[in-house]
Design a binder for these strands. Structure first.
Lengths: 338, 338
DNA sequence: CTGTTAGCGCATTCAG
DNA sequence: CTGAATGCGCTAACAG
C-alpha cells in the first residue's frame, strides 16, 4: 500500500505538504501541487480512510436501519425505493452507507450499538417508527445524531423526523371513498405498533366522523403484510354480517394480498368492493385492477432524511426538525361509485 | 470518548494490558481480566473501530454492489431478499455491510473504486453479472477479493461466483411446458447483457432443440422489467401471426407486468396461454393465477456469497470457487395442458 | 509557502 | 504475566 510518505519522498516534499495538497490547501503553491498530484497518480496513491477517520473523528458514513425482517416487511418495495433516495444524496456528498438488517429487534439493537459505540457512522436513519422502540430510546439517550422516517412515538419535538402527513392522507383517501357514495368502509392495517398504521387509521376515523358515519370496531382489521395477511383480512371480512363496500388498506402490499384472496372468493374489485391504499409502490399500477393509492413520494422521504441527517452530523446542535413530504392521491381503477 | 488509556489508568494497569484483555489474550491473569472488564463497563468503554482497523489493516466490512438503478431493476424483491441472506451470515461473524446503489454504471464504478482504494471494505459482492463489466474488470485487475452472484462473463474459473444452474433451470422449466403439450413456446427475457438472461434463454433453446421444436427468432423477446416491459412484450406477442401457447419468462417481475397487460387484452392465463418464470419471489404466489416458477433460493445465494467472500478475505489465496445453489420448480396455476 | 512535531486509539513487538 | 516503546496513515498545530 502506497502511503502519504511514499508520495512525499517521491516528490521531494514533506508528508504534511502532501496532506495539504490532498485537502487542496490554498497555501500550497500551484507548482508543488502539480508535482505532488502527478506523483500521486504515478504511484497510484489513495488516502486511507481509516487513518483519516481516526484523526478526523468522523467517518462520513451513515447507518441505515431497516425494521426487523422477521415479519418479512422487508419484502416491501418501499425499502429499495427509499434506499435509492438516500443513496442519491449520499453519493453527491461522498458519504457511505452502512446497512443494518437484523432478523430480530434484539439483533438490530446490537448492531446499532456497535455502529454508535464503535464510531462506525456519524449518524443513523431509522426506516421505521414503532411504539416503545429500544433503538430510538438508545439513540436519544446517547445524544447520537439520528433521524426517523415516520413519526416518533414520543418526544416528537426533540427528534428530527421526515414523514408524510399520514393522518391527513388517511382522511383524504377515506373521504374520497365517502364521496363515491360508500358508507360501510373498513380499514385494514398493519401492526398497530407501527406509528404509520395509527396515523392512517386516525385519518380514516376522522373522515368517517366528519361524514357522520359511525365507527365500527369490527370494520377495523390489523394484520400482517403479504399473502397470509391478505388472506386473514379477507377471511375476517367475509365473516361479517354485512361486509363493507369500501376498504382503506394501509399498504399497497396488503392490498395485493387481499386482491388475490378476494378474487378467489368471487368478490370483484371494484364492482363489489372498492379499495384504496397507500404508498404507490410500482406494483400498484400492475395489479388488476390498478390501485387508487396515496403516493407518498418514497424517494423524497429517503433523500430528505439523508440530507437532514448529514446536516445534523456536521452541525451537532442543529435544532430538531420535522419535515413533511407532501402526498398525492393517484386515481386508478380500484374504486367505483356506490 | 473513553479510550483504552482511561481504562488502563482507572484499573491501574498499562494500556497494552487492556488491549490484551479485549483480545482475551490467555497470558493475562483471570484476576486482572476481571478487574479491567469491570472498569470497561463502568466507564462505558468501547473500542474505536477506526483505530483498530488502522492497525489491523482490515475493516471487517464488505461492500455490496447493486446493479445500476437507472433501469429500476432495484425494484425487484430479489434484492431485499438477497440482502437478508448476506445479512444473516454477516451478522454471525460481526461483519458490517456497505451498500452501494449507484444510479449509473459510472457512479457505481466510482463508488467501488472508493471502497477499494480507501480500504473501506475487505471484499466486495457483486449482485449482478453483465457483459464487459467495468467493475468486474477493475476488481480482477486489482486482485481485490470479490465474488459475483451469477455467472461471470469471462474468467469463469478465476472468479469465485455463486450461482444457480440457470441453463439447466431454463431447460427444465421449458421441458415442463413441452410435456404439458405446448409446442409454440416463446421466451421473454430481460436485457441480453445480463448473463442470467443468456443462460436461461440457452436452456430454453436446448429444451426446444431436444424436443425437435424449431427455434423461432420472433418468439424471443427482450425487454425491460416492470410494467412497460410487460406491456411491450405483450404488444410484440399480439403482433405475431400465430401467438405462442406457452411462455417462458426470465423473471417473476416481468411475468407480473405481462399478466396485467394480458388480461387487458382478454387473453387468459393459463387457459389461452401458459406461463412459467423464475425466482419465486413472494409475489409469485399472490398473482392471479399464482405462477409456476423456478425457486432459485435467493437467500441462500446471498448467504453463500457472503460466506465464501469472508473466507476469501481471511485467506487471501483461497482458490476461486464456483458454488451452485440448487433450484426447484414450484408448480402453481399458470400452466395448463395444451 | 513548507517542514517538524505530535498525536488520534489501538495492537504488537520486545523486555523483563 | 505485564509494561514500555513503536508505529499503523493521516492531519493539525506550531514554527520558520
Amino acid at each position: 500500500m502506497v502511503t502519504i510518505k511514499d508520495v512525499a519522498k517521491a516528490s521531494g516534499v514533506s508528508p504534511s505538504t502532501v496532506s495539504r495538497v490532498i485537502a487542496n490547501n490554498p497555501r500550497i503553491s500551484e507548482e508543488t501541487k502539480k508535482k505532488v498530484r502527478r506523483m500521486m497518480k504515478e504511484l497510484g496513491y489513495h488516502p486511507n480512510i481509516n487513518a483519516r477517520n481516526l484523526v478526523a473523528k468522523s467517518t462520513k458514513a451513515i447507518g441505515v436501519i431497516m425494521p426487523s425482517s422477521a415479519n418479512r416487511a422487508l419484502q416491501n418495495p418501499f425499502f429499495p425505493e427509499i434506499l435509492r433516495g438516500i443513496s442519491s444524496v449520499i453519493h453527491d456528498v461522498s458519504y457511505s452507507m452502512f446497512l443494518s438488517t437484523g432478523e430480530t429487534e434484539e439483533e438490530i439493537f446490537k448492531e446499532v450499538q456497535r455502529m454508535v459505540y464503535g464510531s462506525y457512522v456519524d449518524g443513523v436513519i431509522l426506516l421505521y417508527s414503532r411504539v416503545e422502540d429500544k433503538v430510538t430510546n438508545f439513540l436519544r439517550e446517547q445524544g447520537f445524531p439520528f433521524v426517523i422516517v415516520g413519526k416518533p412515538d414520543r418526544f416528537e419535538t426533540e427528534i428530527t423526523h421526515v414523514d408524510n402527513d399520514n393522518f391527513k392522507a388517511g382522511k383524504e383517501i377515506t373521504t374520497h371513498l365517502i364521496e363515491m357514495g360508500h358508507e360501510r368502509i373498513g380499514f385494514i392495517g398493519g401492526s398497530r405498533e407501527l406509528l404509520v398504521t395509527r396515523e392512517r387509521e386516525g385519518g380514516y376515523e376522522a373522515a368517517l366522523r366528519e361524514a357522520g358515519i359511525p365507527n365500527q370496531e369490527s370494520y377495523k382489521i390489523h394484520t400482517q403484510f403479504l399473502k397470509s395477511g391478505g388472506r386473514e383480512a379477507v377471511e375476517h371480512l367475509l365473516s361479517l354480517e354485512t361486509i363493507p363496500t369500501g376498504l382503506v388498506v394501509s399498504d399497497d402490499l396488503i392490498s395485493l394480498g387481499m386482491l388475490s384472496r378476494l378474487e378467489e372468493s368471487g368478490i370483484r374489485v371494484p364492482q363489489d368492493v372498492s379499495m384504496v391504499s397507500f404508498n404507490n409502490v410500482y406494483l400498484s399500477e400492475i395489479t388488476r385492477p390498478a390501485l387508487t393509492t396515496v403516493d407518498i413520494h418514497i424517494q423524497e422521504l429517503g433523500a430528505q432524511s439523508a440530507k437532514v441527517l448529514i446536516e445534523k452530523t456536521i452541525n451537532k446542535n442543529e435544532p430538531a426538525k420535522r419535515i413533511i413530504i407532501p402526498h398525492k392521491i393517484v386515481y386508478r381503477d380500484s374504486v367505483s361509485k356506490h
